[in-house]
Design a protein around this nucleic acid. Sequence first.
DNA 1: CAGCATAACTAAACATCTTTATATAAGCTA
DNA 2: TAGCTTATATAAAGATGTTTAGTTATGCTG
Lengths: 140, 140
Amino acid sequence: MHGELQELGRAVKQAQYRQHRALDSALQAVGTTLAQWDALRAISRSPGASARELAAATFQTEQAFGTLAGRLTAQDLVERRPGHGRRIEHHLTPAGEQVLAAGRKVADRVLADCFSALPDTDRATLLDLLRRLNTLQEAH
Amino acid sequence: MHGELQELGRAVKQAQYRQHRALDSALQAVGTTLAQWDALRAISRSPGASARELAAATFQTEQAFGTLAGRLTAQDLVERRPGHGRRIEHHLTPAGEQVLAAGRKVADRVLADCFSALPDTDRATLLDLLRRLNTLQEAH
DNA sequence: CAGCATAACTAAACATCTTTATATAAGCTA
DNA sequence: TAGCTTATATAAAGATGTTTAGTTATGCTG
């Protein structure tokens, strides 16, 4: 039982690692990185969101997202406008939209490749299991 | 189809992130970190292994493992002896063994907690799917 | 209004990891 | 033996992330 849990943990890590590496490498061709593209994607999903909200959406701390957003702003991919209170609202620039779109094409290809090892049914099962694992954890 | 793959990717990342956070936080109580404990575990599994081998076992680059091993050596948890060629052989010190054991107790508890959301059968299915995903990828 | 609570951003230190480049040891081969 | 190849390690720079500790803006409450 013990060994099985440790193996499960390692399997999750390994899967995530492969995915991360594959995406990050491929995104270089579009001149971006996984962390940055993921941030662009999050901003695109919630235009005007605060750094705090976006940090949560991308699974990291506010500070980490803050420096990332700084790099994106320096590249003119993101615009940060002051909002209510200390809030800062994030929006994609046209250049940011372009990088996001280019990255999406790459990511779709890479992810398809990553998961092509599993037939459709199994992939669906996997998604279901992970979804349950993650949502049940949230309650906890 | 596209959206489903992206969601799958995010689900994997989220599961790994939770696990990482939970383990890392809990391991603080034993005075170590997830990265360091994982390195100790890898060394314990293959005593005398080179940095290169251990880097692969812990899913990272040689350089990353090198600095990690440096920190562990500084803490007297690991001993590095010169081997054949430029090879460096890694062994746990008695203190390292102790930290490893203490961490194992913590990790077992945390992992059990992490995956308790899923019933036994589902957990087994998840492990099977991940295992297949990872091994099939290796061939590729 | 004064004090406190909450939300949100920032700073500094440091751990971790990657990339790119370089160095060194052994073995093989011509 | 000289040169190539392979295995292994290290260095330096920078990206990414966490922790701990502020700072600032708003709102609430007495």
